[in-house]
Amino acid sequence: MDLTSYAELAVLLVNGELPDENGLREELTSVFALADAGKHEEAVELLNALLARHPVHPHISAHDGQGWHLHLAEGGLVMGLAAVVTDLGVDRLGVCRAARCANVFVDTSSNRSRRYCSERCASRANVAAYRARRRNAP
């Protein structure tokens, strides 16, 4: 079972791309913000509280031509983030550095270098930095 895909669902929820059926968006946003600010112990404490309040309810499913596999109902998003934190580190949860963007992301890069939520934000930031350098050049 790939729990990282559940962590990516948490990212989609926080970024407003999924409905907030369980009222998790605000607290998951806080987990990412605390992790991004280097407050790792506080992020883990909040994640532990969420794990306690949203237990995982696994069930077996077969769909879309796939064989039998596990799905995590209810607390799957929280469990996915917990798995990322324990496998990769709490510093892998981040908030986009692009101006006017507050989206979150899970950094699964090999060198821990991700700073933007998407290629689009990275490109915009790079173009803005280039234009600023050109304006300030003698």
Rank of each mutant, 00 (worst) to 15 (best):
A62H: 01
C121I: 13
H59D: 03
L72D: 04
V95N: 08
M79V: 13
L81N: 15
A43Q: 08
G16M: 04
A52F: 09
E27S: 13
R100P: 04
G75Q: 06
T4F: 04
A132M: 07
R53F: 02
H40A: 08
R114I: 08
V56Q: 03
G76I: 01
E27I: 05
V90I: 12
H59F: 01
A125F: 14
W68T: 06
L18N: 10
A35R: 13
H69Q: 07
G94R: 02
R114K: 09
Y130R: 11
L50P: 15
T29C: 12
A83Q: 15
N22Y: 05
T4R: 00
S110R: 07
A35P: 15
V104Q: 03
L28M: 10
G76Q: 11
C101N: 07
P55S: 02
D64T: 05
A128W: 11
E8F: 06
L47M: 13
S110T: 10
T4M: 06
N111M: 06
C101R: 09
E119L: 07
F32C: 12
D64I: 02
L18T: 08
G76M: 03
R135F: 08
G67N: 06
R115H: 05
N22H: 08
V85N: 13
S123C: 09
S30H: 14
A33W: 13
P138S: 02
R100V: 03
A125Q: 14
V11K: 00
R120Q: 12
H57R: 03
P138Q: 07
N103Y: 06
E119K: 12
G80Q: 07
C101S: 06
T108C: 01
A37S: 14
E8T: 08
G94C: 07
F32M: 10
D64K: 06
A43Y: 12
E74L: 03
H59T: 02
D64V: 02
L47D: 15
Q66T: 09
H57K: 01
E119A: 07
N15I: 02
L34I: 12
L24E: 09
H69L: 05
L12M: 07
N136T: 04
N126M: 10
R134C: 06
V44W: 13
R114C: 03
E8S: 02
Y130H: 11
A129N: 11
N126Y: 10
R114T: 00
S61T: 01
A125R: 14
D20G: 05
C121M: 12
R114S: 04
A122M: 10
T86W: 12
N136V: 00
A137Q: 08
L72F: 03
A43D: 11
N111Q: 03
E27L: 06
L72P: 05
G23A: 00
I60L: 01
S118R: 07
V56C: 01
H59L: 04
A128R: 15
G67R: 05
A62P: 10
A99V: 06
R133W: 08
L24Q: 12
L13S: 07
L50K: 15
S110Y: 05
E42K: 15
S118G: 02
V14R: 11
R124K: 14
